[in-house]
Amino acid sequence: MIRYTLKCPEGHRFESWFHNAAAYEALAAAGQLRCPDCGADRIEKSLMTPDVRPARARPPAPTEQLAPQTEREKAIAALKRKVEAEADYVGPRFAREARAMHDGTAPERPIYGEAKPEEAIALIEDGVPVAPLPFTPTRKIN
């Protein structure tokens, strides 16, 4: 779809949407475009400002991020540093790893990662001790 600003010989300006530039040209050549104010059928494209959105801002690099402001934010940042320093990041294998440790088929160790809601519910229902973290992990695996 394309939007054009149009004008008639009387100077009335209006906008209209077209499937593409060729659709505008075909309708204009056939005299099928009309001014909504005066009904004139000699319609031309007018100068228009393109509707360009600004580029998305780049998220700040970790060193550019602002220091936590509230006590709660400070506590969450401290918890994140502790978890990331002392636990193994297992990513999407979290549910499998947690269940294996609970069943005794894998050695116990501190882990963190991601689990789908249904996986987390199943772990809790089976008595596997898990808890959601109040932050998004920084590390990702390939």
Rank of each mutant, 00 (worst) to 15 (best):
R72W: 11
A61N: 12
T70R: 08
A28I: 10
K80D: 01
K116R: 12
Q69L: 10
R53T: 10
A120I: 06
G127E: 13
K140M: 04
E15H: 11
K82G: 01
R53Y: 08
A77I: 07
A87E: 02
P50W: 12
R81C: 00
M48R: 04
F135Y: 13
A21F: 08
M48S: 14
I124M: 15
M1S: 15
T5E: 06
P54N: 14
F135Q: 05
D51H: 11
C35V: 06
I43K: 00
M101V: 12
R13V: 07
K116C: 02
T138A: 09
R96W: 01
M1D: 06
H12K: 01
H19C: 09
Y89A: 09
E44I: 04
P62S: 05
P36Q: 11
A22S: 14
R56E: 06
R13L: 14
E10T: 09
A98I: 01
D126N: 14
T70F: 07
E84L: 00
I141N: 09
P9L: 00
P60K: 15
K45Y: 01
R93H: 02
S16N: 12
D88N: 09
A106N: 13
E97C: 13
G11H: 10
F94T: 02
S46A: 15
H12I: 05
R109A: 14
R13P: 02
P62R: 11
P36C: 07
N142L: 13
P54T: 13
C38V: 08
T138M: 04
I141H: 03
E125N: 15
T105K: 12
V128N: 03
A98K: 00
E71P: 11
N20K: 03
F135K: 07
L133K: 04
Q69Y: 06
A100C: 06
A77L: 12
G127L: 08
K7C: 03
E10A: 15
C38A: 12
P134A: 08
K80R: 15
A77C: 04
C38I: 12
A87D: 01
Y112N: 00
A61Q: 12
P129T: 07
R34K: 15
D103Q: 14
F94I: 10
I124C: 14
V130L: 03
P92Y: 04
P110E: 02
G39D: 10
E118I: 06
E25T: 03
D41T: 15
A95S: 15
R96F: 10
Y89W: 10
T136Y: 12
L123T: 01
V90Q: 00
L66M: 13
P60Q: 15
C38L: 10
I124K: 15
G39Y: 05
K140A: 06
A75N: 05
I141T: 10
R109F: 13
I43N: 01
T5M: 07
E114T: 15
K74N: 12
H102I: 12
V90R: 02
M48E: 10
A61S: 14
G127T: 09
A67W: 03
Y4W: 13
R96N: 07
A28W: 02
I76H: 02
A120L: 13
T70P: 13
V90M: 01
Y24D: 11
R96A: 11
G11S: 07
E71T: 12
R72N: 05
P9E: 07
T136P: 00
K7M: 02
M1L: 14
A29E: 15
E125H: 14
I111E: 01
